[in-house]
Amino acid sequence: MANSTDYLLAVEGLTVSFDGFKAVNDLSFYVDSNEIHVIIGPNGAGKTTVLDLICGRTKASGGSIKFRNKELTAMKEHQIVKAGVGRKFQNPSIYDDLTVFENLEISYPRGRSVFGALAFKRDAAVRERVAEIAEMIFLADHLDQRAEYLSHGQKQWLEIGMLLIQDPELLMLDEPVAGMSVNERKKTAELLNKIIQNRSVLVIEHDMKFVEDIAHRVTVLHQGKILSEGSMERVKNDPKVVEVYLGH
């Protein structure tokens, strides 16, 4: 096995058990710089749990997660974010009571301490960056709108935008196109291909067409373990994968 220092993210022997049930079991995988890595697998395979572990939402029972050779398992959530890991939740998680502008502004990586936030000024740099991101996520005309009134797809984009504005080195997306129309999916794929420059993306997705469009590498998870790994081509033709996942 290659030396883990070459990778942006190195997950090794990762295990978590909930009351004895091992949702993730001795899992190892690696993400390269500038790679779109997709995790697929049946419902309950432990995909979301893997992201929870990486971003610090769930504490690992064992194993290690190294991001740029820094051990994440010992860090607090906000420190992991500051280290350069951004995470999108499975259901769009945005602030309904705030406008699109304010949603993006809160995610802008400045004034994150209590007094920093009190003294925060909405200056030209903030405005420009918000405008730039809004343009990218197709919401430039909605900046003043309360986020509550966005469509489901727009909410997903807004949350992606909230991550982009932090400029994370590793972006983790949990089912970004779930519930989207065909047209919205296409735009999302376009968006992901645009934002892949200078960063890695870890995506969980069920939509095979979408996965084929974007994936550089695929990991198939089943009952907390890796079932198969490699290019989409390889994984698709792996009989084990066909049996437990693609078959139905």
Binding site: H78, V81, F89, I94, L98, Q166
Partner: peptide, 30 residues
């Protein structure tokens, strides 16, 4: 206070505490 970004962060964490946390804020301090 309400007009500051801190005021908006308070509203944000009332709504989606985890999102605020995973945007790099130490929610407890707020």
């Amino acid at each position: 206070v309400r007009r500051s970004k801190l005021g908006r962060i308070l509203v944000a964490l009332r709504d989606k505490e985890d999102r605020v946390r995973f945007s790099g804020y130490d929610v407890a301090n707020f």
